[in-house]
């Protein structure tokens, strides 16, 4: 596979009277051709700064970037025709219609006029194409933004929060659209906070926190390498659960008691649980590995999981090291 997008050691520093803030601190990212790539990070982690820098809106302080094998920002004018992008919330001039807006962009970019109608159809705005943009809902503006990004039939599509404001039907349509685009050979970079969606539609992800990459790879790899080794244990009815828990704790297990079962948090080798309990003639009725989803991996990696009694501030992260090893291994 060839890399459509490469970022290495990207740095961006903002200086103000309040001091110096490193928005990007040696950030790396690679996106292979034909993939739907999720770009994740908490608020203020540097996602939008990365995209703006990549698209020539912000000047970096260091690092290198390449799109479609060409160094940017130097070659950006040459590759811009093959990159469709929306950055942050959709922003259009409210008094123009959607058709006017896209038509003017098509003129500016030397794109065929027929594409305007094609993309309006594609994003479901055909019947509202002649309405002023200021009468649109957030979701409709989002669709228009996606339409503007698709207008030039890009090889690389960069979408920042494309599902923002969409209704459930719209989110599903967007998911299908992304998949279809990827199948047609387009590479899609998708920044979103709807992690369930990312997990559903992305082939690979990059997770950024505090301006640095904290995880990257295929979704399955990222989940696997960051999955905790917890298992859910249920015993036969009538069995002394308290005794079983004390037995396991005495052997070093980290046990959390639930209503009718308990969790062993550091079960690197679940067979150890059955052996210890069986030796005392306690038999388990259920032993289920607790599979991690992208949301929990994200919260773990970015250190942004809510903590009871604390109000987390934006920019406040506590990046944790990926989980490894465990009791019983």
């Amino acid at each position: 596979m060839t890399a459509v997008l490469e970022i290495a050691g990207l740095q961006k520093t903002y200086r103000s009277r309040k001091g110096v803030r490193r928005a990007l601190d040696g950030f790396d990212m690679t996106v292979e051709a034909g993939q739907v790539h999720g770009f994740l990070g908490p608020n203020g982690s540097g996602k939008t700064t990365t995209l703006r820098t990549l698209l020539g809106l912000i000047r970096p302080n260091g690092g290198r970037m390449a799109i479609l094998g060409r160094e940017v920002p130097e070659s950006l004018p040459d590759v811009a025709g093959q990159v469709g992008a929306i950055v942050e919330s959709p922003q259009f001039f409210g008094n123009f219609t959607a058709q006017d807006t896209l038509s003017l962009l098509a003129d500016a970019g030397g794109v065929r006029k027929e594409r305007v109608f094609a993309v309006l159809e594609l994003v479901g705005l055909r019947d509202r194409a002649k309405d002023r943009v200021k009468t649109y809902s957030l979701g409709m503006k989002q669709r228009l933004a996606v339409a503007s990004a698709l207008l030039k039939e890009p090889k690389l599509l960069i979408l920042d929060e494309p599902a923002n404001g969409l209704d459930p039907g719209g989110i599903r349509e967007m998911r299908t659209l992304m998949r279809n685009l990827a199948e047609s050979g387009m590479t899609v970079v998708l920044s979103s906070h709807i992690l369930g969606e990312i997990q559903l539609i992305c082939d690979s992800v990059t997770i950024i926190s505090a301006g640095r990459r904290v995880a990257a790879g295929s979704v399955a790899d990222v989940l696997r390498s960051n999955t905790s080794s917890a298992v859910k244990v249920s015993l036969e009815p009538g069995v002394d659960m308290r005794g079983a828990i004390e037995l396991l704790r005495a052997n070093g297990a980290q046990v959390t008691v639930e209503h009718d079962h308990f969790m062993v948090g550091n079960a690197g080798n679940p067979a150890q649980i059955t052996r210890i309990l069986a030796e005392r003639e306690i038999y388990v009725s259920e032993l289920t590995p607790v599979s991690a989803d992208l949301e929990s991996v994200f919260l773990q990696l970015t250190g942004t999981a809510p903590v009871e009694g604390q109000n987390r501030q934006v920019d406040q992260t506590a990046a944790a090291a990926p989980a490894s090893g465990g009791w019983g291994q």
Binding site: G56, P77, V87, F93, L105, A108
Partner: peptide, 12 residues
């Protein structure tokens, strides 16, 4: 309105 940013994405 953000139109300038849009335009710069098309013509950097």
């Amino acid at each position: 309105s953000g139109g300038m940013m849009n335009l710069l994405l098309w013509r950097p």
